[in-house]
Computed example of a mutant assay.
Amino acid sequence: MLTRALIVVLAILNVGVASWWLLRSEPAPATPPQPATGVAELRWLPGGTDAAAVAQTAATAATAAPTEALQEREAAPSAAVAATEAPAAAPPAEAAPAVAAKPAEPVVQKPVVETPAVEKPAAPPRCVALGPFADRAAAVAAQGRAGKLLAPARLREQPAASGSTRYRVLLPAAASREDAQAMVKRIVAAGLSDYYIISQGEESNAIALGQYRNRAGAERRIAAVQAAGFQPRLVASGDAGQWWLEGQLAAGSEPAQAQQRSGAAQQRSLECTRLR
């Protein structure tokens, strides 16, 4: 019984395999891989086509393919340039949307830089001598009239050409001979020497304290006598000298202006170094 069943099963299996074999479809042929661009494709042509002719046709196709690709690449930039140069079609006029105006920015003014004025160099000082004046008093009066036109100013005495001018230092005349002798005792007590009492003339009972050829020496003697507590005076004798007013001109003034104001008869240029 079991054997019979196995035989039936085997028979059914055989029938199924035979039916599948008869009804199955032919498998699709495998697609050969595509060759790279520019490489000729070899195909089998039925009917005994000459292999040499097939190879020549493939070579011609391979040569033409790169040439056509190169022409296409060269034509592409030309088309792009033409598209760029071609004027773009004006878009249809549309109402432009209103744009709110931006507020004006405040104008910042830069500070004006003033160029400092170039100061002109100061003019060199000028000094003059005004005169001559007959005596010291006249020269002092001229100095007062000149005022600030001469600053600083000084008086200078020019001795007479003959050189006979003498300068004496005198104490005022006493009321009597006894008073003059009493004054002499005071002079000796103060340590002064070189003195004598004038006994005649207009200067009788005056005490002479020295005679000098130049004014500078006489002025030094006067200073010493004044330091001892006395008040002498200077008397010039012989040919009188001349007095001059010397000084530096104020800025902006002229020598002629100073001469006119002082009343001097002459004016001379003077080196300012002589005033120092």
Rank of each mutant, 00 (worst) to 15 (best):
G238D: 04
L209M: 14
A223V: 10
Q231D: 15
G217E: 09
I207W: 02
Q242G: 12
A228W: 08
E202D: 11
A240W: 05
A208C: 14
I207D: 00
L245C: 05
N205D: 14
L245Y: 01
V225S: 03
R221Y: 04
P232I: 04
E202R: 14
R221M: 02
A236W: 06
Q242L: 14
A224S: 12
W244G: 03
E219C: 07
L249A: 05
R213S: 15
E203S: 12
A224L: 14
G210W: 00
F230A: 00
G241Y: 00
G229P: 02
Q231K: 13
V235N: 05
A208F: 10
G201I: 06
Q226M: 11
A236T: 13
L249D: 03
Q226G: 09
F230T: 00
E203G: 07
A206P: 05
G241H: 02
A223K: 11
A223R: 13
G241A: 08
P232T: 06
E219D: 10
A224D: 13
A206W: 00
I207L: 06
R220F: 12
G241F: 04
F230M: 01
R220T: 15
G238Y: 01
G247D: 01
G238R: 01
E203I: 09
Q200C: 11
I207R: 00
D239G: 07
G241M: 05
Q231W: 10
Q226Y: 10
Q226I: 11
A216F: 13
R233M: 13
R221S: 05
R220S: 14
G247C: 04
R215W: 13
A228L: 08
Q248G: 10
P255K: 01
A228Y: 06
R233A: 13
G217M: 05
A228T: 09
Q248L: 09
Q200K: 14
Q242I: 12
Q248T: 15
P232H: 08
L245E: 04
A227R: 15
A224E: 14
A227V: 07
Q200A: 15
A236P: 06
A240N: 10
W244C: 01
W243G: 03
E203Y: 09
Q226H: 09
A251W: 08
I222H: 00
S204N: 12
F230Y: 02
A206S: 12
Q200S: 15
R220P: 08
I207Y: 03
R215C: 04
Q226P: 06
G252S: 05
L209W: 03
S237N: 11
P255I: 02
P232F: 04
I222L: 09
Q200I: 12
V225H: 07
G252T: 01
